[in-house]
């Protein structure tokens, strides 16, 4: 066997710090995606046609262009406009922005799933628009879409290796550096692949459990 297990074990600790960075990017990126996506979804239902159109176009544009290019855009262009941000912050921003276009669609489905009568009852009770969204619509819209949001969390996690392109020391970049130092790419790259596989399989299992729980919540 050409795969050197001893070497593989010896480099394993080097991935610890990288895994922390990957997790930071994943969780912060998802948090941003959850917030921004909600903003787009609500803006798309705005009574102001221009606001609704712009939000719709923005979502479509973000969804139709590569994350890598968006990442480059933020990494190279943003500093020209002033703000100095670290590669990690750039990565979080790009991941959050990119996935907000997907979460926006999920929110939209959830919001459309709330019965019309709920809006009507809220109007009949004279609840304002903000109160209606916050207390009546969103609590009902979010529970059924939790599994879908969970799937996008996993998808976002799997895109973090792209951040290696802007010099962030996450898992893949660490593997590449080890490879460049030792001229052995097989072990570090395989380890990273295995790590992603294990973590996303675990996350998928959790999501499926969540799905079942949400079904029970809705029907029970």
């Amino acid at each position: 066997m050409i795969f050197d297990w001893g070497f593989a074990f010896s480099i394993l600790p080097a991935f610890g710090q990288a895994l922390v960075v990957t997790m930071q990017a994943t969780l912060a990126g998802m948090a941003l995606a959850l917030v921004l996506g909600l903003v787009w979804a609500i803006a798309r239902r705005s009574r102001n046609r221009l606001v609704a159109f712009c939000a719709g176009f923005l979502v479509e544009f973000i969804r139709s262009t590569p994350l890598l290019v968006q990442l480059y855009f933020l990494f190279y262009v943003l500093p020209l406009w002033g703000p100095r941000i670290t590669p990690l912050e750039t990565g979080i921003l790009a991941l959050g922005l990119h996935y907000s276009a997907y979460t926006a669609e999920v929110y939209r489905a959830g919001i459309n799933g709330v019965a019309r009568g709920q809006w009507e009852a809220a109007l009949a009770l004279n609840l304002g628009r903000a109160v209606t969204w916050r207390t009546v619509i969103l609590p009902q819209a979010v529970v059924p879409i939790l599994p879908a949001l969970g799937n996008y969390l996993v998808a976002l996690f799997k895109e973090t290796p792209l951040l290696s392109a802007i010099t962030l020391l996450e898992l893949l970049h660490t593997a590449k550096l080890i490879g460049a130092d030792t001229f052995r790419y097989l072990e570090p790259l395989s380890l990273v692949g295995a790590l992603f596989l294990i973590l996303s399989l675990m996350a998928s299992t959790l999501t499926r459990k969540l799905e079942k729980a949400c079904d029970r919540f809705r029907h029970g």
Binding site: S164, L172, L189, V192, S200, L201
Partner: peptide, 20 residues
């Protein structure tokens, strides 16, 4: 293929597979 990242797969095939 769904469980690992597309970029990792690409690197693996391009950089690691030649070693075997």
């Amino acid at each position: 293929f769904r469980g690992t990242s597309a970029l990792v797969q690409l690197f693996w095939v391009y950089f690691a597979l030649p070693l075997v």
